[in-house]
Design a protein around this nucleic acid. Structure first.
Length: 299
DNA sequence: AATGCGTGGCG
DNA sequence: TCGCCAAGCAT
């Protein structure tokens, strides 16, 4: 009988095999995409993917990059143009932050997206996730990339919980300990953990029968217990201030004249105090400006 | 550290 | 129908 036992493959090689055969063919994973747009392409895709689903980002990304193929190109745009191009991707402050980041990259880094995580973190709109995603996926460096997907996979596979707890910087430490030693393998590991969480180890109705690491999952082996969910619930959108802001901004984006009379902005809105609140807060956020009783996108 | 911030698809 | 959820960030 066999004297030589086959070593059981480690987590990272199982995930790498699975990733290479099962991962979705997304634009930002193509070699041609990196050849055309470099790290800027990765950075823009990551901004758009902050809380906006992949399927909604895909049709908007290429148009953005064709209009502004480099940080320097985008740095000379106006906020109004950027917010307009962002359209209905949601959370329009991200468009302003991306614009500021482009200006900062042009000023501080000669127009080249920095590779260093500290430098990336110093840019507007870039936090722990985006900084390391750019460093790992655009530059191939070894950093723990922690997002909602990897946190859920770690919570289930490692802790046996049905949902992760609130996001914590400790997650970075946990993820880093799982990374393979080699830079390139570590980038694949990050991508594979995210892909697994996005397509198999989903928040609701996870497809454990299709999971490549089912055999080593603490949650599955203990019978998928409901361990509770201490994540904060999302506030209701219907009737919210956010909905009012969204309606005002939509009106500004769609205004042919580029400006709307203040008293005509979402004129059919029933809660007038809420409408005024929305306008004031958009101005405070730099997403709108008022002059001569007109409201417009910021110039 | 808890909150506020868009929008739309899906079960 | 309607609540859940989505590659987070700044304050």
């Amino acid at each position: 009988m066999p004297v030589i036992s086959t070593p059981s493959p480690d987590l990272s090689s199982i995930l790498a095999d699975w990733y290479h055969s099962e991962a979705r063919d997304l634009p930002w994973r193509r070699k041609a995409f990196h050849a055309r747009f470099g790290a800027w392409g990765t950075l823009v895709s990551e901004f758009m993917l902050q809380q906006t689903p992949v399927t909604r980002v895909i049709p908007r990304l290429e148009a953005w990059l064709e209009r502004w193929p480099t940080p320097t190109a985008m740095s000379s745009a106006t906020p109004a143009e950027v917010v307009q191009q962002w359209a209905n991707l949601g959370y329009p402050r991200r468009a302003l932050w991306l614009h500021r980041a482009a200006i900062e990259i042009t000023a501080r880094h000669g127009g080249d997206v920095p590779r260093n995580v500290e430098a990336l973190l110093a840019l507007s709109g870039i936090g722990d996730y985006t900084a390391r995603a750019v460093a790992a996926f655009a530059f191939g460096d070894r950093h723990p990339v922690v997002d909602t997907n990897t946190r859920r996979v770690m919570a289930r596979a490692l802790e046996g919980r049905s949902q992760p707890g609130p996001a914590s910087r400790r997650d970075l430490v946990t993820m880093k300990a799982l990374l393979p030693d080699a830079d390139d393998e570590s980038a694949v590991f990050n991508a594979a953990m995210m892909e697994l969480g996005a397509t198999v180890c989903t928040s609701r109705a996870p497809k454990c029968e299709r999971c490549p690491i089912a055999a080593q999952c603490a949650w599955l082996s203990s019978g998928r217990p409901d361990t509770g969910d201490d994540r904060r619930k999302q506030a209701r959108y219907e009737g919210s201030d956010r909905q009012a802001r969204g309606a005002v901004l939509k009106a500004l984006r769609e205004s042919d004249a580029g400006a709307v009379p203040l008293d005509a902005v979402i004129h059919d809105w029933t809660d007038l105090a809420q409408r005024d609140r929305a306008i004031d807060s958009l101005i405070a956020d730099g997403l709108a400006e008022a002059s001569e009783q007109m409201l417009r996108l910021p110039r």
